[in-house]
Design a protein around this nucleic acid. Structure first.
Length: 111
RNA sequence: CCAGACGGUCGGACGGCCGCCGGCCUCGUCUUUGGGCGAAGCGGGAGGAAAGUCCGGGCUCCAUGGAGACAAGGCGCCGGGUAACGCCCGGCCGGGCUUUUUAGUGAUAAGGGGCCCGAGGGAAAGCGCCACAGAGAACAAACCGCCUUCUUUACGAGGGUAAGGGUGAAAAGGUGCGGUAAGAGCGCACCGCCGGACCAGUAAUGGAACGGGCAUGGCAAGCCCCGCCUGGAGCAAAACCGAAUAGGGAUAGCGCGUCCGCCGGCGCCCUUUGGGCUACGGCGUGACAGGCAGGUCUUCGUGCUGAGCUGUCCGGGUUGGUUGCUUGAGGCCGCGCGCAAGCGCGGUCCUAGAGGAAUGGCCGUCCCUCAGCGAUGAGGACAGAACCCGGCUUACAGACCGUCUGGCGUU
RNA sequence: CGGAGUGUAGCUCAGCCUGGUAGAGCACUGUCUUCGGGAGGCAGGGGCCGGGUGUUCGAAUCACCCCACUCCGA
């Protein structure tokens, strides 16, 4: 699973398909340059908390994605997760469930 | 045993499964032999504040090192520690709280002890400010008073005075006696103040013979004076490799000089198939002026440059890799010196190096806190390395150790 | 990560350098004017000056330490 790093790629997500949950907002967009690979980008803004909180959220979301993506993610797609405050202390099983539901919902809607 | 203050140490422990970062090593594979990719194994992987960015350094660039002047900024009792500091340690002085002794009926005064706090040079170098109130706020002044003189008298005018009243943050020594028209350091005693031989101490400072009737209000975290310190930027510094573009344009200021050698050469001259002089042009591991440095200037040495240099503005390309990047004023242990901060010697250890940024997810046992009779349940402070050190400041659940103070219990 | 700034009335700002009274515009309240509203006139309320400590007789102002926000950068 690749990582989205460049600002350009994040900006390209504008207008992409969305799926909301208590712990995050998920954006998905097919990217022909990926050659079938799945890429993940994480956004955790300073509004959410200090460095400790932001780091923990990033790690929890990454752990959940590692578990959920292999089964549910569509090939050749860029995903971006915009974290919400709940991702810090929400039960891990619930976060994992949020992610699976979001992936399913996007798989139905995306063209 | 409990409570408090101060100082110090630690800041959850162990294990399992699946992952992340970088290191070592092995294997496989590809290769343009530099290396790339993949897999297995071994061991490592956040802090005491990693934070705020408030000081001090190292390191890198501005060509480089030194000296001086000015400007700007900072620091400021003394001694020590340190690479250095605005930090730390010890002392001095001042202030606050408390306790105790002496004097006194008492208010209080003086001395001693303990704890805490202090950005603490100079206000008789100069300038400035001191609102309101008050007569007067810094070469003193005179509102009410007090005393006195004059006019017939007086709530009038003049003079003397600074005790008393009142104002204020602050009113130009205090108390007492003498003295006087009333008063006043006018005189005297005690206290305070100023100067101070000499003594103690490295010093700050303390003590003090003696002298002086007292002259000197406060503010320098106002300007300032004195002494000391400091060039500017910052690892997004900077260097190398690769790619890309045009090392681009505009504008302002200063400068573009001399000599020597060689070559060409207009012209001229001579003793004519050679040589000399020379306008000009070109070249030089040539020489010298000149230029190139940080806030400004001067100066010396070195270096570069020597025809360009400097300032301001506008525009364009690249957003790849490597180095810097972790061994350091380093940690731990022992001995010695020192009241201490700390220093010296010996031994021992190597302990994160990412780059849109790695330490995570789940589970079990134990520890601690809270709730509950219990089964059990909920929770685990502040907070995340980004070039590296020394400090300061701020945040912080809880645990442990030491010293001191107070209380209770037992002997 | 590094470097600059700004916090004053409900809003936008002045006052700070050179310390003693906190002020302007808009908004708000009352009133006059109008048949009514708006505009306009008059009167009025509203601030422990981001927080703390210090210097001073006295601090929005000077100094130091925190908190929040904004801007800049190869």
């Amino acid at each position: 699973m690749g990582v989205i790093k460049k600002r350009r790629d994040f900006l390209a997500m504008r207008g992409a398909d969305k799926a909301q949950s208590r712990s995050f907002l998920m954006l998905a967009r097919k990217n022909p340059e990926n050659q079938g690979a799945v890429r993940l980008g994480l956004t955790v803004t300073k509004k959410i908390g200090d460095a400790v909180v932001r780091n923990r959220i990033r790690r929890r979301l990454r752990a959940a994605a590692r578990e959920a993506f292999p089964d549910a993610a569509r090939a050749g797609t860029d995903y971006v997760l915009v974290a919400r405050k709940a991702a810090y202390d929400r039960n891990y099983a619930a976060v994992l469930d949020d992610m699976k539901r979001a992936l399913l919902s996007l798989a139905r809607n995306t063209t």
